[in-house]
Amino acid sequence: MNLLDIKNLSCGYDGKEIIKNISFSVNKGAFLGILGPNGAGKTTLFKALAKFLKPMNGGIIFQGENTAGISAGNLAKKVAVLPQVLDVPFSFTIEEFVLLGRHPHLKKLEIPKKKDYAIVENAMAKLDIDYLRHRKLKDLSGGERQRALIAQALAQEPELLLLDEPVNHLDIKHQIEILDLLKDLNSAGLTVIIILHDLNLASEYCDNLLLLNDGRIHSSGTAESVLKYEILEEVYKTVLIVEKNPLSGKPYILLVSKFTKEKRKRENL
């Protein structure tokens, strides 16, 4: 059985369809990357998968059950979600913040038990942020903050982790650190669906890719089958060169600037 089946899904805002009749499946243990230009509907699809946005048509089947019939509380026991923007106005310590991830598993008035604290410890240790436990979330660097957010998600003990551009504002070292970490979690059994802007990161890390264009799936499959220059130039409407990463053998995308194009033209090449 697939972990997730998306069947003829259409959704959007204020009656306007953004995602148009999409169907795909996600296996347990997959590491799926969602790609596409700005406005293609990546975040809209993401919100629908996370049940924050109601489908206008079709549905999302999680472990054989339509998510429309699963309460937010029950879904949060199995699915953890990192939205693109998370603004936290108050100064929680990292430990307090990660502990909030236990909420779906706690009953009303139930005080977190030893077991919950152990899970929080474990999550902080996995993310290597236990030494930051008494620091305030807003005092952390971008990379540390992202780790704290993932630790909170892990405290939910999810089977599926959804992330919307989690490495956007990070430098290249921290991008790789976070994605390596997600890959490790994935190897340990966590299914990951991740929106990425950087095609090269997607190529290197994702087992499968879903390329969205104008609310529809343009192509899907392995990095080798999706990241072809014919496909990418059509979707992104810019000239690109696709090479091979000499170490991993995965596709590597190079950009071509207007300046370079004009220079080549002048030199008659």
Binding site: A50, F52, V81
Partner: peptide
């Protein structure tokens, strides 16, 4: 009785939903 829900609501309505708070 609702204090933990309030803790979570400070993260915004979207994240609150993802943590199971209506």
């Amino acid at each position: 009785l609702f204090s933990r829900e309030v803790d979570i609501l400070t993260l915004g309505e979207e994240k609150a939903a993802y943590l199971g708070v209506d």
